Structure formats: structure tokens, C-alpha cells
Computed example of a mutant assay.
Amino acid sequence: MASKRTLRQRALEILTRLKQHYPDSTCALQYQTPLQLLVATILSAQCTDERVNRVTPELFRRFPDAQALAMAPREEIETLIHSTGFYRNKAKHIQGACQKILTDFGGELPRTMPELLTLPGVARKTANVVLAHAFGINAGVTVDTHVKRLSRRLGLTEQEDPVRIEKDLMQLLPQSDWENWSIRLIAHGRAICEARKPRCDQCFLADLCPTAPLIQPASPKTKDKTKVPSQARA
């Protein structure tokens, strides 16, 4: 197992290349207010950003703020977000979060991790997205499926749990770049390092990736279970 110093140096080089190749990457979710970003991020669970962006314009037109969403008939919210999947739970979480924002935070979306985590449907991933993109606060590293998969493939963590992966990454990256890492690694996961067919021959990170020579494209029915072998881990 390589030292933390070696890991940190490699992580910083990866970050530098990601910034060079994806200079304009930003949050793909469309929103106008911090609350709308919160709602969109809740909707994005197990759903594509593109799908969420097709749903939210009408949702926000009908219910543009916390007051409107808190008072809306649950069935109407469910109908509007139905195509994002798990719509009943998502509607419940959105409405519960808005009600708590009204009763506990004076109608304003809180700006700290501990406060955001008290809202229904909000875990660290959602809170990190909102804090970083709505308020410019890097409280942690957003760990979605792309960040989890690629951080493991790149040998920067051996953890499976997103919270533990986040902790590892926070120790390797400067705080000012925590969200830069996530948003650009997501872009790379979509463009090149796909789950089933990673294009290692086209990857500008291949020389820094211990799994690049080892990954074989999985069959469509095979879930990605890439593991970094002990001798290649860094």
C-alpha cells in the first residue's frame, strides 16, 4: 500500500488533468434558487439529470418555493415527478423538507451540513451538492455512483461506503477543490470511464490508473465489480 503522500500526489495530478480536460464542467441540474437545487438533487436519486431537468420546469412553475411545495397536494407533486422513479418517497421527502424549512429555519434553506442533514431525504451527497453549488461552500466531497466507481478504479480508496470514500478523498484533496473533483470526475465517468465499457485506450488518466491494464469490459448483464489488486493499489 503506497503512502498517503504518494496517494495525494497522484490525486492532485489526476485533478489537474481533469480540470484541463473538463474546464467548463458544472452541475448539470437546472435551478434558479437554492431550494430548487435541493429539490432537483432529491429527484436525481437513481434518475438521470436529463430526466430531472425535463420534470422540474413544470414542478417549479406550479410550486416555486418552500411554502408552495409544503402546501401542495401530495398527489399533484407525485404526478409531476412520476417519471423520475420512486416518486412517492421523493414527494414525501420534498414536502417534508419544505415543511421543516418553514417551521425550523424561517423559510430559508440552511447553509450548514448538520442543519441540512436534518431535512427529510437529505444525506451527505445532496447536502454537498447544495452547499457547493448554491452557496459556494465546500463542506465535503460529493460521492455519487460515478465518483465512487472512478475513485476506486483509480486506487484512491478501497472503501465501498460513500461516507468512507468521501473521508478518504477529503484527506487527499485540497478543500477548495472538493467539488471540482466530483463534478469533473462525473464528467469523465460519463465521457470515457463508463461502468461496463471503460475506454482505457482513450483515457488521459490511464498512466495514473492501476486498473487500466486490468479492466475487461463487462457483459451487459454483469455489474461492475472492479477491485484494485493489492500489488497495484496506491
Rank of each mutant, 00 (worst) to 15 (best):
K100D: 01
I137K: 01
I192M: 09
L208Y: 05
C27Y: 04
P174S: 02
A187D: 08
D24K: 13
Y31P: 07
T33H: 12
N53F: 11
A195M: 08
V143H: 03
D161Y: 11
C193G: 07
H93Y: 14
T41F: 07
E50N: 13
S25N: 06
L69Q: 08
R149M: 10
F204Q: 07
M71R: 15
A218T: 14
A40N: 10
R153S: 04
G121W: 01
K221H: 14
G85P: 03
A97W: 00
A68D: 12
R51F: 08
K223T: 14
L43G: 02
L214N: 08
I186V: 15
C98H: 00
R88E: 10
D24W: 08
K148R: 15
L169F: 09
L7H: 05
T157G: 05
D168P: 06
H133A: 09
A2C: 14
R149Y: 10
T84Y: 03
M170C: 12
V129C: 05
A45D: 02
V228P: 01
I101H: 00
S3V: 10
P120D: 05
L214E: 09
R17I: 07
R5V: 14
R74I: 13
S176P: 00
C98Y: 03
P114Q: 08
L116Y: 01
T48C: 10
D24C: 03
Q99N: 07
L185S: 07
R152N: 12
T56L: 11
M113I: 08
E158R: 14
P110T: 02
R10H: 05
L205T: 04
T142Y: 01
K4C: 11
Q46Y: 07
L185G: 01
T26K: 15
L205F: 09
R233D: 13
P174C: 03
L172C: 06
L173G: 01
P174T: 03
S182H: 04
R164K: 15
V129W: 02
T118R: 10
Q159C: 09
A187Q: 11
E166Y: 05
W178D: 00
T222E: 15
A234G: 09
E179A: 05
C193I: 07
L18W: 03
L69I: 13
N180Q: 14
I77W: 02
A195Y: 06
Q159N: 10
A212T: 09
M113C: 04
L109M: 07
R111C: 02
F63I: 08
I215A: 13
A234Q: 12
L119I: 03
A187S: 13
L119G: 00
T79E: 14
L38S: 02
K167N: 12
P23S: 07
K225I: 11
N89C: 04
H146I: 06
T142C: 15
L172N: 03
Q36M: 12
R88Q: 14
S182Q: 05
E160A: 12
Q171V: 04
T48E: 11
G189R: 04
L185H: 00
S3L: 12
L18R: 01
K125L: 04
K100T: 04
S83G: 06
R5Q: 15
A191Y: 02
S219T: 13
